[in-house]
Amino acid sequence: MTTTQITLGEPLYGASFPQAVSRFFRKYATFSGRASRSEYWWWVLANVLVALAFNLVGSLTDPQWTSRPIDVFSPFASGGAFALASPVGVVFLIYATGILIPALALTWRRLHDADRSGAWFFIVLVPLIGALVLLVFTLLSARPAGARFDE
Rank of each mutant, 00 (worst) to 15 (best):
P87Q: 02
G89L: 13
V90G: 13
V90S: 14
V90W: 15
V91C: 08
F92M: 06
F92D: 04
L93K: 10
I94T: 12
Y95S: 12
Y95T: 12
Y95M: 13
T97E: 07
T97M: 13
G98T: 15
I99Q: 02
I99M: 01
I99F: 00
L100V: 11
L100C: 13
I101A: 13
A103P: 03
A103S: 15
A103D: 13
A103L: 13
L104T: 14
L104N: 02
L104A: 13
L104K: 09
L104R: 04
A105D: 02
A105M: 06
L106C: 08
L106N: 05
T107W: 01
T107R: 03
W108T: 02
W108S: 04
R109F: 01
R110S: 02
R110C: 03
L111N: 03
L111A: 10
H112D: 01
H112G: 01
D113A: 08
A114P: 05
A114I: 08
R116D: 12
R116E: 15
S117M: 07
G118E: 10
G118W: 06
W120S: 08
W120C: 07
F122H: 04
I123G: 06
I123Y: 00
I123W: 05
L125D: 04
L125Y: 09
L125P: 05
V126Y: 00
V126F: 00
P127I: 07
P127A: 10
P127C: 10
P127K: 02
L128A: 14
I129K: 00
I129E: 00
G130C: 00
G130L: 00
G130Q: 03
G130V: 00
A131N: 14
L132M: 12
L132V: 12
L132F: 09
L132S: 10
V133G: 08
L134W: 02
L134M: 10
L134S: 01
L135E: 05
L135I: 11
L135C: 09
V136E: 02
V136D: 01
F137L: 14
T138R: 07
T138S: 14
S141Y: 06
S141I: 07
